[in-house]
Amino acid sequence: MDEINMACTSLEDCGAHNTQIDPLQDLGNEILQLLCTRLNDDCIMTMQEGLRLMQRSSYYLEIQGDDLPPTADEQQQTVHSYNSTVWSLVDQQRLRRAMTLAKTQVKLHLTFLGLLFEEIIRGSQELEAFVLNYNRGLVDSDIAAPTQERLHQTHQYLNAFESRLNWKLGPLDLQNQLIHNTGGLPIQLLSVSLAKKMPVIFNRFETRTTSNNVHLCWEVACEQSQELNQEFEIHVKSFHPTIAEYCQFTKSTCKSYNIEVNNLIPDRYYKFSVKRVDSVNLVYGLWVDTLILKTLDISKSEQAVSN
């Protein structure tokens, strides 16, 4: 990008001494405008992080009723009871088809986002190469048309990526209702949609290790406050005597955003993993955050204290 900034200055200097219209220079200026705004390093990093969050998120199938009461604290039990009733009436064969459809929709969306990002990066590299070669006098008018087309395509890819990155997971278009015998429940008020939850990640700064204890903390990406009624699954796997050889494995669940793992062996590597507890309506969610830590060596700790 430093070379591009230098090229920008060079293009302006060329224009100051050239009284004739130069279509290649105009094209170069258009490209520089894009490279310095929507395709600068910060923007590309933001797009990459947005794509990573989408790929690591968990996606759920939700059955909703338009007549559900507001989700105020005092009405949570009513909503839970309503949803439990709805799920108990769902036809399992139709539910499996809906889950498959939803999973396919999520995977296609994520794959398309990934392909768009690859095309954006490829376009950025080609456009940057054009500017640098123009500045060195290595391009001619024959390359103007394909470069103009690549510029147009890159604009389109950027617009498509940005719009799909904020994809609103709306209702699914199902051929059949999930409930064929409602027992008086109004079918027309039910809808099926996809919901997204951001990935769970360890908070490396809050995690602490002793010789036989590890305090683990985690959070949900991009969320400022902890969501209520969340349940997490924590895996602990030890390595003995090194990380090349697995040993003991344990699994536990908790409803908080931290846990104390006790009775560990000093001077040993442990692999910790955290994710949300799988639920019946989970459609797609591959991301599991992992962390490898080594418990402290007691002898070294005691020696350090004595010194």
Results as ranks from 00 to 15, higher is better:
residue 191 S to Q: 13
residue 209 T to Q: 12
residue 239 F to N: 04
residue 226 Q to C: 13
residue 190 L to W: 03
residue 208 R to M: 14
residue 231 E to P: 06
residue 207 T to L: 00
residue 201 I to F: 02
residue 232 F to M: 10
residue 218 W to T: 07
residue 215 H to D: 10
residue 242 T to V: 11
residue 236 V to W: 13
residue 211 S to T: 01
residue 196 K to Q: 07
residue 197 K to W: 02
residue 236 V to Y: 03
residue 225 S to Y: 14
residue 199 P to L: 06
residue 228 L to G: 13
residue 226 Q to R: 15
residue 217 C to D: 13
residue 240 H to G: 11
residue 207 T to E: 04
residue 198 M to I: 04
residue 212 N to L: 00
residue 217 C to S: 05
residue 234 I to N: 02
residue 213 N to R: 09
residue 210 T to G: 14
residue 230 Q to C: 05
residue 190 L to F: 05
residue 230 Q to A: 04
residue 232 F to H: 01
residue 224 Q to P: 14
residue 202 F to R: 05
residue 230 Q to P: 05
residue 211 S to K: 01
residue 238 S to D: 08
residue 219 E to G: 15
residue 241 P to N: 06
residue 224 Q to N: 14
residue 235 H to M: 13
residue 192 V to E: 07
residue 212 N to S: 09
residue 208 R to W: 10
residue 234 I to K: 00
residue 219 E to N: 12
residue 202 F to T: 08
residue 205 F to I: 13
residue 209 T to E: 08
residue 214 V to E: 02
residue 227 E to M: 12
residue 207 T to C: 04
residue 191 S to I: 08
residue 196 K to S: 01
residue 231 E to R: 15
residue 220 V to G: 02
residue 242 T to D: 12
residue 242 T to A: 09
residue 239 F to P: 03
residue 222 C to M: 15
residue 215 H to W: 12
residue 238 S to I: 00
residue 197 K to Y: 02
residue 231 E to N: 12
residue 226 Q to V: 12
residue 198 M to P: 00
residue 229 N to F: 03
residue 223 E to K: 14
residue 201 I to M: 09
residue 210 T to D: 12
residue 238 S to T: 06
residue 221 A to Y: 07
residue 221 A to M: 01
residue 204 R to G: 04
residue 209 T to Y: 06
residue 214 V to Y: 06
residue 212 N to I: 01
residue 231 E to K: 12
residue 200 V to E: 01
residue 221 A to T: 08
residue 208 R to S: 15
residue 214 V to P: 00
residue 236 V to T: 09
residue 198 M to W: 10
residue 205 F to S: 15
residue 201 I to V: 13
residue 233 E to F: 02
residue 201 I to Q: 03
residue 218 W to C: 12
residue 225 S to A: 13
residue 204 R to A: 05
residue 221 A to E: 09
residue 226 Q to N: 15
residue 199 P to C: 03
residue 195 A to I: 04
residue 227 E to G: 02
residue 238 S to N: 09
residue 200 V to K: 01
residue 234 I to A: 05
residue 240 H to A: 11
residue 190 L to D: 05
residue 192 V to K: 09
residue 205 F to T: 13
residue 215 H to G: 09
residue 232 F to T: 01
residue 212 N to V: 09
residue 241 P to Q: 08
residue 215 H to F: 11
residue 222 C to W: 15
residue 224 Q to K: 11
residue 238 S to L: 02
residue 242 T to K: 14
residue 204 R to D: 10
residue 230 Q to S: 04
residue 191 S to W: 09
residue 223 E to D: 15
residue 192 V to D: 08
residue 222 C to G: 11
residue 197 K to H: 10
residue 193 S to L: 05
residue 196 K to R: 03
residue 220 V to N: 00
residue 224 Q to A: 14
residue 208 R to F: 12
residue 217 C to K: 08
residue 204 R to N: 07
residue 234 I to S: 04
residue 206 E to M: 13
residue 216 L to A: 01
residue 194 L to D: 00
residue 196 K to I: 00
residue 223 E to M: 15
residue 233 E to H: 07
residue 197 K to T: 04
residue 203 N to H: 07
residue 210 T to M: 15
residue 225 S to P: 06
residue 241 P to I: 07
residue 241 P to E: 05
residue 202 F to V: 04
residue 216 L to D: 01
residue 194 L to Q: 03
residue 198 M to T: 07
residue 219 E to P: 05
residue 210 T to K: 13
residue 205 F to A: 15
residue 237 K to G: 11
residue 212 N to R: 03
residue 213 N to F: 15
residue 206 E to K: 06
residue 231 E to Y: 14
residue 218 W to Q: 11
residue 195 A to P: 08
residue 242 T to W: 07
residue 202 F to M: 03
residue 209 T to V: 13
residue 209 T to G: 05
